[in-house]
Computed example of a mutant assay.
Amino acid sequence: MALRYFEKKNYTSKNSCGASSGGAPGTVGTSGSALNVRSGPGTSYSVVDTLANGSAVTIRCQKSGETITGTYGTSNLWNNVGAAGTNKYIPDAYTQTGSDSRVAPDC
């Protein structure tokens, strides 16, 4: 479909340029404080680690869970940033991925 000169269309890229094999790239974005890494997709899960603001992460897979409002909006997606077989989740709302939707497969 062709757009007329006065129309505009926004596109969201879902490619993973520069991603290492096994996941999509992301960057932790907070107000400067460290982000808690949880053992599951919600704040009721135990804290197993922390990540500094600006940390680069590899998103292995994503899971729906508790809805969180953060730096990059409101989302119920949680990103698994641990090695295969580990449960290390951070809220997608605090992860810059270049997309407002899923960037990795379901966990």
Rank of each mutant, 00 (worst) to 15 (best):
G40V: 10
N15I: 14
V37Y: 08
K8F: 04
V48K: 01
T58Y: 00
N87M: 10
I68V: 10
V57F: 04
A83L: 01
N76Y: 05
S101K: 09
S16M: 10
G65S: 07
A93C: 11
T12E: 15
S64K: 15
P105E: 07
T69R: 09
V81G: 10
W78K: 12
Y45K: 09
I68R: 01
S46I: 01
W78D: 14
S99Y: 09
L51E: 06
G29E: 14
S33K: 14
S101A: 02
G32V: 13
G22M: 10
Y89K: 03
A24K: 02
T50P: 08
A104Q: 12
T50M: 06
G85V: 00
T71I: 11
G85D: 02
D92S: 06
K8P: 05
Q96H: 04
D92I: 06
S46T: 11
P41V: 08
G42L: 01
D100T: 11
V48L: 13
N87A: 15
N76D: 14
R4P: 06
Y45A: 13
T12A: 14
A34W: 01
V103K: 11
G98A: 08
Y72L: 14
P91W: 04
G54V: 06
G98N: 13
T58R: 00
N87D: 15
P25G: 06
D100F: 06
L3P: 12
T27C: 07
P41R: 09
S55D: 08
L51V: 04
L77P: 00
Y5F: 13
V103R: 14
G70V: 05
C107T: 02
G70Y: 02
G32K: 01
N87G: 15
G54Y: 11
A93W: 05
D100C: 11
A93F: 05
S31G: 14
T97F: 06
Y89A: 01
N76I: 04
T69C: 12
R38G: 06
Y72A: 14
Y72N: 13
S46P: 07
Y89D: 02
T97Y: 10
S46N: 07
R4E: 09
D106F: 02
A2F: 09
S21Y: 09
A34Q: 12
T86S: 15
V28T: 02
G29A: 15
T12H: 14
A84N: 12
G18L: 12
E7K: 06
V48H: 10
P41I: 03
L35N: 02
S20I: 07
T58G: 01
A52E: 15
G85T: 00
T69E: 04
N79D: 13
D49L: 04
S101C: 01
T43E: 13
S20N: 05
R102C: 00
Y11I: 12
N36E: 07
A34S: 14
T69S: 15
Y5G: 10
E66L: 05
A84E: 09
A34D: 00
L77C: 05
A83Q: 07
A24V: 02
P41C: 06
